[in-house]
Structure formats: C-alpha cells, structure tokens
Design a protein around this nucleic acid. Sequence first.
RNA 1: GCCCGGGUGGUGUAGCCCGGUUAGCAUAGGGGCCUGUCGAGCCCCAGACCCGGGUUCAAAUCCCGGCCCGGGCGCCA
Length: 435
Amino acid sequence: MGDRWEEGLHMGEEGRVRVHGWVSEVRDLGRIRFVVLRNWREKVQLTLKRGVTPDELFDLTDELTQESVIEAIGEEVAEKRAKAVDREVIPSKVIVHSIADPKLPMDPNWKVPAQLPTRLDNRPLDLRRPEVQAIFKIEASLIHGMEDWLRENGFLRVFTPAIIGAASESGAEVFRVKYFDREAYLRQDPQLHRQLTVIGGFERIYDLGVNWRAELSHTPRHLSEFRSIAVELAFIENEQDTMRVEESMIRAGIQRVVEERSRELELLGIQLEIPNVPFPELRFPKVYDILEEMGKEVEYGEDYDTESEKLLWQYVRQEYGSDFFFVNRFPFKAKPFYVMKEDDMWARSVDLLYKGLELSSGGQREHRYEVLLSQIVEKGMNPKNLEWFTKFFAYGAPPHGGFAVGIERLTMKMLNLQNIKEAALFPRDPERVLP
RNA sequence: GCCCGGGUGGUGUAGCCCGGUUAGCAUAGGGGCCUGUCGAGCCCCAGACCCGGGUUCAAAUCCCGGCCCGGGCGCCA
C-alpha cells in the first residue's frame, strides 16, 4: 500500500511532487540549506536557496529539528551533485506536522551507535534506521514466502487459543493469567491444540502466532514472547514427511527474501544463499559417535547440550556444506509424552538446527490412544491432568506430525544478528515489558 | 536460577590495575560564520563518575551491599 500511495504523490505535471518523512538532517550553509528527509523507502533532499526560495519558506526551516516530521511540495530536479540521497526536490511549500525535541535519547543517524538496551528503551527512534527497518522487511518477506508455500501445498491457516486452562506439555515455565475467577495460562506452544485441530478433521494446518515462556533466560537467543510458524499434518507415513514439509517451507521463505529484499540484504551486508533440500539428517545414537569424534563426550541415552549443537553444525558444514540440519531419533526420556517412539529408547522426534541453533522441534506424534496414555504414565505425569487433551484420541485420531519454527530465531540466524531481540519489534524478556 | 564481566555528560567512550590539579575525546544540543552540503567544515558555550555504606589526609579509581545491563550455562523455539 505504501508503494502505491507514494506513487500517487508524484503529481505528474512538470515534475511536481509531494514528499514526506522524518528530518534526518538540516545542513545550514548560510545562504543555502539542505533538509534531508528519511522515509521507509528513500532519502529525499530538499534544497532551499536564499533569494530563490521565498524568505518565508526559507526561514521556516530555522525551527526544523532532527526527526521532525514534514511534508513538502515542490519540483523534483535531476541533480547529480546530490550524492547520498535518492532524490532532490526544490520545495515551494512545506507542511510541518511535528517538531521533534532537539534532545534525542539516541541518534537514528547512527553517527554515534547506541547499545542495544538504549536502542530498545527508545525503540521507535531505533526503528527509523534503515538497517533496522531492513530486518523487519526481510522478516515479512520470509513469512510471506513460507505462508505462500504452505497455502500452495494445501495447508489451511488456523488460529488456536493463546489462553489455555491447563499448563501445556513441557516443563517450561508458563505465565499465569487471571481468568475470571480461575487461573489460566498463556500458551508456550500451540502444539496440543494443533493436534486437536487435526483430530477435528483438518488434515493440513498451520498456526502463525505468539508463544510465551516464563523462563528466566538471559541469553541472546531467548525471548519471553516469541512468534512461531507451526505446522501440523495428518496421514503421514512417518516423521520424514514432516521434515520434507519443513525444509521446503523454509527454503521457500528464504527464496522469497532473496527475490524481494536484495536491497535490504545488501544494506545489512548479508549474502544469502537458498539452501539445498533435503537438509542433512543426523540420528541418535550415531550423534554420540560424531560428538565423540569431535572430542565431546555425551553419555549414551542422554540429551546433548548447547556446545554439542555447535559441534554438530561444524560437522555438518564439513560433511554436507549445509547450515541447516535435522537431528532425529532423540532419546524418548528427553522429549515430551506425545512424541511417537521408534522403539523403547528412541523417538521419532526431530529438531531442526540452523547455524548451530535449535530452530524448531517436531516429528511424528503418538496418535494411538492406549499408547499415549501409557507414555504419560511413563513420564510420571498424572493422566487426569491431560484428560482434556487425551480423551479425544479415543474418538478417532489419524497418524500425524508437525513442527514449530521460531520466527525470530530464523531471522536472527539468517541475518547473523548478535541478539534475538533485534529480530523482535518490541522484544519482551524477563526485565523488559516496556515500551 | 547459577557463574563471570560491566555501569563516567543525551549518546558512545578514555581514565580505574598503580587513589592525588579545572575527569579527556567524539557526537548530539545552544550561539556564530559559510550558496552544493551529503559522517559537511571552522570558532565559541553548556553538559557526566548508578545508589548506599566503608577504608583513607584524599575515592570515578580500593572494599562491602543493593539496583541495573551484558555474556556463559541450564531450559527451550
């Protein structure tokens, strides 16, 4: 919409245009002044000359401060002396919408870079930086590409609830909310309701939405509130079917970024390659051998740690030249009750890793009612607490599986961002809920 | 939650080890000069040691506590 609207602002006759933006800079050279406007598409320079520009208009720019918001009407001129801007306009009229306080808490022009906490404290100013806008333009294209692929392949977008009456599957801490006279929780993952939707007869679905984790995580890769694109599909043969969907979806997202966002990628200095599919797959228990070769002992039957993820990435890069890889057949003891077992020890449970970071968990789910119940008992959980979920498996459940990809994590790794908070507009962590 | 590191003008930093003049610099801000700047330039002005306690003749500097921030781990996406 922004694009079309902006085009409409070119008034056509005699190069007359209407431009708008935030004042990036006022360069006062005495009898000539340049006002550089920044908007989300471009930089426009307004040029005012004493004696040529009407005095009223020239003097109006006295009050213009950095980050003030104005519109201008004037003649666009072809001016090769204007180097660091996209266009130059000789204004005949300027409309001042807002004069910014000259004492800014940070500099959107980035002459003095601000630290991340300062940036986040002043996020609306930080967001004006083209480099920051590029992140979110890329993220939008990424999601569009993934969603389009899902739609083209028969997946239906659904919305599952964010407020749930029973703490969901994993051991991760949940946010408690007051729900009328009861307690309820914010979802950590749309997983269980996705499964119930499939049991409801929707054979291919995805939920693009928000998840919350109340963990006191202080790391550059955790948020208290994050978004995921979560897919579930029925009548699968095994977990391989979910992996094929996942890698194709991600490939399509990245392809869309490459197609639509070359300018933004260049601005961020990122050379993005469209990944080859299928992604390499590592399996337990072979993972233990690989790690041992890399000089890392992980006890047989145990889950691996953060360091192992990085080592496996090194291994996959050497062996397959890929930044993406699946890890399959995790030990059942390390995974939730609902995963499908391959045998007594290993599960059809799949993580996707990207540059050494876990992007998603997924795989095939256990759809057989009796088996599901016995796995709950095996996990030492009270079947009563999960009855709201499990009872529907008694009324006909197809074999199914799925996964949830963390959007901020994918964006972060794709753009080599140092902190996941850079990939969230207004990130939430244990310390930050404002702005 | 545990461990490690750090808090100096609006922003970003130097100084801290080895305590001692007016706490330096850049940028933003205020004032001035300049008709093609584009990280504009030049001159002038103003602006800071996180909070509390302790050691000392003397603390930005050393010690203790608190608060805040960053990183590592765990947990996960």
